[in-house]
C-alpha cells in the first residue's frame, strides 16, 4: 500500500532537481522568445521566400508531437554536428554529445512557434494611435520601437510568457526519454531503487502541483499590479 515515509523521502530527493529544472526551462524560454521574435518578424513583414519556409516550418511543428521532434533532434543533431565539425576541421565526437543540448535545441524550436504567436499578438495590441503619436513627435523607427511599442507589448505578453514557462517545465518531463534528469526523471530513478512507483510518482505530482500553484499565485499578483496601474 501507500507508504508515507517513502513518499516524504522521495519528495525530498526530487526537490534537489527542481532548481536545475527551473533553470533549464528558463534558458529554453529565453531562446525560444528570441527565435519566436525572428519568426514573428518574418511573418509580419512577409520577408521574401523565408515567409513561406516559416509557414511550412510552423505547420510541421504544430502537426507533430514534441516527443517525435525531440527524438528527431536526438538522432539528427549529433550526426549533423559531426559532419559540420569535419568540414571545419574541429575536434568533435558525436558519442559524447550531451543530450541536454539536444533538449535545449528541440524545445527552443518547438516553443518558438508559440512565442511568435504571443509576440505577434502583443505587438498588434498596441494601439495604432500610439505609433502615430510617436511619428508625429518625430521619433525614428528604432526609437518608436524602443520607447513606445516594446514597453507596452511586454506588459501584454508577460502573462503568456509565464504560461509558456509553465508548459516548458511540464514538457521537460519528456526529456528523461533521451536521458536528461528533471523532476519526473528523478522520480523514476528513485522508484527504480525500491520499486515503489506509486509513492515516487505521487511525490513528483506534488512537486509539479506546488510549483505551478506558486507560479500561478505570483502571476495573479502581477496581473493585479498591472490592472491597478492601468
Amino acid at each position: 500500500m501507500f507508504e508515507f515515509n517513502i513518499f516524504a523521502q522521495d519528495f525530498l530527493n526530487i526537490s534537489t532537481v527542481i532548481p536545475s529544472t527551473l533553470a533549464l526551462a528558463l534558458l529554453i524560454l529565453l531562446i525560444s522568445i528570441a527565435l519566436g521574435g525572428v519568426l514573428a518578424f518574418i511573418e509580419q513583414k512577409r520577408v521574401f521566400v523565408l515567409w513561406k519556409v516559416s509557414q511550412l516550418f510552423r505547420s510541421f511543428l504544430r502537426g507533430t508531437p514534441l516527443l517525435v521532434q525531440l527524438y528527431l533532434a536526438f538522432y539528427c543533431l549529433p550526426v549533423v554536428l559531426q559532419k559540420a565539425a569535419l568540414l571545419a576541421y574541429l575536434p568533435f565526437n558525436q558519442n559524447d554529445f550531451n543530450p541536454v543540448y539536444t533538449v535545449i535545441v528541440a524545445y527552443s524550436v518547438h516553443f518558438a512557434v508559440f512565442q511568435s504567436e504571443i509576440i505577434r499578438g502583443s505587438f498588434l495590441s498596441v494601439g495604432y494611435g500610439q505609433i502615430e503619436a510617436a511619428q508625429a513627435s518625430g521619433f525614428s523607427f528604432f526609437q518608436t520601437m524602443r520607447r513606445i511599442i516594446i514597453p507596452q507589448a511586454i506588459i501584454e505578453a508577460l502573462p503568456n510568457f509565464f504560461n509558456s514557462y509553465l508548459s516548458v517545465i511540464k514538457s521537460l518531463s519528456l526529456a528523461f526519454l533521451v536521458g536528461v534528469v528533471d523532476i519526473l526523471a528523478k522520480a523514476k530513478l528513485e522508484s527504480a531503487l525500491n520499486f515503489r512507483y506509486l509513492e515516487s510518482y505521487a511525490a513528483a505530482a506534488t512537486a509539479y502541483w506546488l510549483l505551478c500553484s506558486i507560479m500561478t499565485y505570483i502571476l495573479g499578483i502581477y496581473e493585479k499590479l498591472i490592472r491597478k496601474r492601468a
Binding site: 509553465l166 511540464k170 518531463s173 519526473l184 513528483a204 502541483w209 505551478c212
Partner: peptide, 8 residues
C-alpha cells in the same frame, strides 16, 4: 493543468 500528461 499543472502536472505533465506523462506523469498522469
Amino acid at each position: 493543468r499543472s502536472t505533465p500528461i506523462l506523469l498522469q
